[in-house]
């Protein structure tokens, strides 16, 4: 238990800003990312936009090495979260503890609300009930769900609405105190009210956590992100303050995409 506790070190171990230099990625022969370099600031929301197949989700998945699971995937370049080179001998499990991920489709585990949240901390060695209770409450409070779920902690998470399930997944990611949260189109399957709640959550969480979100909804990017990156054909075409990218894009390809002239 002591050893596992050590592996569950505070998020500062990985820091929170993300620095990538000359990233290239291949799926077999297909090059999906080309010379991508970026400095993602800590404790802000950064949005990646671009047409389907442009590489934005692939790039996002590099930050917690999800692409390691894809056969034939090869990654080059320097990826740093804080001071840590995440491809340089880092323990992938520890990395994924510090870099949480939320997917397009809510994926609660087929177990109770409580056990969903407690799953990560238990994996990392937390056993004491009082400690787990505290983590569950704090995580649900952070995800603005405590009031609606505090009397239903023992019920199956699969009985929640889609929007609640997605926020539960965010709470589950928060339970292991990540420094970075990656979101891959987290609201594309949700109604406007649930979408609004997730967006509010992003804003609140960005005070303490670095959030990187892939979205097809450009209005969402303008609403919640501080920085926006536009990807096209595996290249990061433009990256800057969201206000600048949407009011005065520097690259004509960005302009054409965001104004709907593309293609």
């Amino acid at each position: 238990m002591r050893k596992k506790d050590k592996s569950a070190a505070p998020a500062q171990e990985f820091g929170q800003s993300i620095s990538v230099s000359c990233a290239n990625l291949w799926y077999g022969e297909l090059q999906a990312l080309r010379e991508v370099s970026i400095e993602i600031p800590a404790r802000q929301v950064t949005a990646f936009i671009g047409p389907s197949g442009c590489g934005k989700s692939t790039f996002l998945k590099c930050f917690n090495r999800m692409n390691d699971l894809v056969p034939g995937c090869r990654v080059e370049g320097s990826f740093r979260i804080g001071q840590t080179d995440i491809y340089g001998g880092t323990d992938v499990n520890a990395l994924r503890r510090h870099v949480g991920m939320v997917f397009q489709k809510p994926n609660p585990f087929p177990m109770s609300v409580y056990d969903n949240i407690a799953y990560g901390p238990r994996t990392f060695g937390v056993r004491r009930r009082t400690e787990l209770d505290e983590i569950v409450e704090t995580s649900l409070r952070q995800a603005a769900m405590w009031e609606e779920l505090k009397d239903r902690l023992g019920r199956s998470a699969l009985g929640l609405s889609g929007g609640q399930q997605q926020r539960l997944c965010i709470a589950r990611a928060l339970a292991v105190r990540p420094g970075v949260i990656l979101m891959d189109e987290p609201t594309s399957a949700l109604d406007p009210i649930s979408t609004g709640k997730i967006e509010e959550l992003c804003e609140a969480l960005s005070e303490s956590t670095t959030i990187v979100i892939v979205t097809h909804n450009m209005q969402q990017a303008t609403r919640i992100s501080h920085k926006t990156g536009f990807f096209l054909l595996g290249e990061l075409v433009e990256f800057g303050d969201t206000d600048d990218v949407f009011a005065n894009p520097k690259d004509s390809r960005t302009e054409r995409y965001i104004t709907g002239r593309f293609g």
Binding site: Q219, T222, F246, A247, N248, P249, T254, E255, I258, T259
Partner: peptide, 9 residues
């Protein structure tokens, strides 16, 4: 239309 870029300007 929620215009952006040149359209917004």
């Amino acid at each position: 239309r929620q215009p952006v870029a040149k359209d917004f300007r």
